[in-house]
Amino acid sequence: MKKRLEDKVAIVTGGGSGIGEAICKKFANEGARVVVAGFPEDSVEEVANEITKAGGKAVAFTGDLSVEANARKCVELTVQEFGKLDILINNAGVFPEVNLVTDYTEEAFDYMLRHNNKTTFLMSKAALPELQKTKGNIVIAGSEAGMVGIPQNAAYGGTKAFNHAFMRGLAVEQAQFGVRCNCVGPGPIDTAWTHASTGPMDKEMEKTNKIATPIGRLGTPEEVANVYLFLASAEASYVTGAVYMVDGGITLGKGPIGEKADSSMKQEPEGDLDLKHSMDGHTSIRE
């Protein structure tokens, strides 16, 4: 049986941990050659090596992709290594602070604008000439917070709402060149971001994420990667300008509805990927 991304070449930003690691490994399993891109501090080399050892093809690119020269270099490396570019996954993002707007730091806000929005813009700008050649596609990381707004996450949600609107503009603009553009909007996913011990949330928020989700649990990185795979594949040939929510229903949920979820829903699927870096995502503000 032909693999769903056979002969495709993909860049995955933020590919060293969390959802990004799952996307990289899912795509590699489906036949894609993958450029795992991210901060030098992230596990991008490890993820690329793990894919290679499992029989896939991957290379790492390390650098701050909110710098235009680095975004161009990432695309150039991809074409140099694999001859083309079919898919850009703008997954990279940061979640440095949870706070009321009156207390939210300017440092955290500027950091999010750089890595949630500027990186998405610059990587899209750099990749589009290559994607137009291959009639490829872009999938961008949106969020539940960008759809409905969340208290103490208003600034973060604002950056994700930009990504939703930016994607829609790209979808309309780039259709004339044969390029599709979509978003995936995760809700609470089991990564470093959703645990008080590894991210900016407190224990109460960590608990609320589960009970406010109709399915009654956190999602897994692989469950999100499954939707990225669909949107990046030819199966989504008639899908552009869409935001696909992968949120366990939390965007629609009212109150502690997750406590009533059927036990079958609360059970995580086993999954196929060997994920080692789900909790490695950095949430701190770096210079």
Results as ranks from 00 to 15, higher is better:
231 L>S: 03
205 M>Y: 02
45 E>W: 06
283 T>Y: 04
262 D>P: 11
138 I>N: 05
170 L>N: 11
62 T>D: 09
211 I>P: 00
15 G>N: 09
93 G>A: 14
272 D>R: 09
63 G>Q: 05
141 A>Q: 12
199 G>P: 00
192 A>W: 04
17 S>A: 14
202 D>S: 12
249 G>N: 07
166 F>G: 09
243 V>R: 03
110 D>Q: 13
143 S>M: 06
37 A>K: 00
154 A>R: 02
61 F>I: 00
140 I>H: 14
154 A>D: 10
210 K>Q: 12
88 L>H: 13
158 G>T: 05
101 V>P: 07
89 I>Y: 06
285 I>A: 13
70 N>Q: 11
19 I>F: 06
85 L>S: 03
41 E>N: 05
237 S>P: 00
64 D>G: 10
38 G>T: 03
36 V>A: 05
217 R>W: 00
136 G>I: 03
130 E>A: 07
74 C>I: 00
202 D>N: 15
231 L>C: 08
194 T>L: 05
172 V>P: 01
95 F>A: 11
167 M>R: 04
185 G>A: 15
72 R>A: 10
59 V>D: 03
122 L>F: 08
210 K>G: 01
240 T>I: 09
24 C>R: 04
146 G>M: 06
2 K>V: 14
142 G>W: 08
267 Q>V: 12
264 S>H: 05
29 N>Y: 07
3 K>Y: 05
247 D>P: 00
225 A>M: 12
21 E>G: 07
163 N>P: 04
24 C>V: 06
259 E>R: 14
143 S>K: 05
59 V>I: 13
119 T>S: 14
67 V>E: 14
214 P>N: 08
250 I>H: 01
180 R>Y: 10
10 A>S: 15
236 A>W: 06
147 M>H: 13
255 G>A: 04
208 T>D: 11
4 R>T: 12
52 T>A: 14
31 G>Q: 14
191 T>M: 06
